[in-house]
């Protein structure tokens, strides 16, 4: 059964590591749904959050092949774990005076924020899990989306365990 998995991949913070990971996915035909990278509390280590879809066998192969990369230190599949998942979205939406109030309401409901006001548009920032981000995008669509960017997911296990 195809299912989305969120992998937290700890890697060396070195040039070329991202290419090594993406080359592996391309070569083996695995599809990255989203990927985000950033430095961790230890500046020699980066953390990638990779969302990949596949059945158990594919995810097992992805994990084993990733482990073979010398620069990959640790992989945790967060899918089955109790974890916090967040994504950030920026949406520039058409907003003339007639609809501004309505949009502000939606923004409130989703606990999003307006971060820029233009003559005929607003930029809205929201964070949340994928479901929430999809929902806010859907709600704003009828007004006319001018531009949209999503960061891809970051995630962390809840509680004390690393």
């Amino acid at each position: 059964m195809n299912k989305k998995h969120t992998l937290a991949v700890t890697v060396e913070n070195k040039p070329g590591v991202l290419t090594r990971v993406t080359t592996l996915f391309r070569r083996r035909g695995y599809n990255i749904e989203s990927l985000s990278v950033g430095e961790t509390e230890n500046p020699t280590i980066s953390r990638m959050t990779i969302v990949v879809a596949g059945d158990e066998k594919i995810i097992e192969q992805v994990t084993k092949q990733l482990y073979k990369l010398v620069d990959v230190i640790k992989i945790v599949d967060l899918t089955e774990e109790r974890s916090v998942e967040r994504e950030l979205i920026l949406i520039k939406v058409k907003a003339d005076n007639n609809v501004r109030a309505e949009i502000v309401q939606i923004v409130d409901i989703f606990r999003a924020r307006i971060v820029d006001i233009g003559r005929n548009s607003l930029i809205i920032e929201a964070t949340g899990d994928a479901g929430k981000i999809d929902a806010i995008e859907d709600s704003l669509k009828p007004f006319g989306i001018l531009e949209l960017v999503r960061t891809g997911k970051v995630a962390m296990i809840r509680g004390g365990r690393p």
Binding site: K57, Q61, K64, Q65, K68
Partner: peptide, 8 residues
């Protein structure tokens, strides 16, 4: 020796 070979 290569875990990725098993079940591939």
């Amino acid at each position: 020796i290569d875990a990725a070979e098993i079940g591939k």
